[in-house]
């Protein structure tokens, strides 16, 4: 649980860790019930709809309003770019 929390960048208290470990166990148990079935001949499902090859044409739709709106939504803008903390405290 601690590992999952760390990967998701969540800070959990000890009490939360205990609580979520229990809940996660229940989820894993549920998934574990599938082990009872022989699925060797069943192809993995990539998508529930069964569709393939949904494409769009390679045609540009650039909208200046979108840019203005997007930049306006950023908490801080410098030189037309979004200003953010340095890689979330992690050295690259």
């Amino acid at each position: 649980m601690a590992k999952v929390a760390q990967l998701a960048m969540l800070e959990l208290s000890d009490e939360e860790l205990d609580r979520f470990t229990g809940q996660l166990d229940a989820v894993l148990d549920l998934g574990g019930r599938l082990d009872a079935f022989d699925v060797a001949d069943v192809p993995p499902t990539a998508h529930p709809y069964g569709l393939t090859n949904v494409f769009r044409a390679d045609t540009v739709e650039n909208d200046d309003d979108v840019r203005a709106e997007a930049l306006a939504a950023g908490p801080e803008i410098e030189d037309g770019r979004f200003k953010v903390p340095p890689a979330l405290g992690e050295a690259l």
């Binding site: 540009v60 979108v66 979004f82």
Partner: peptide
Amino acid sequence: SPARNEFGGEPNTNVHP
């Protein structure tokens, strides 16, 4: 997304939701 694929350009001009 249908935003333009282009090198260079002013920052955040070739963007789309």
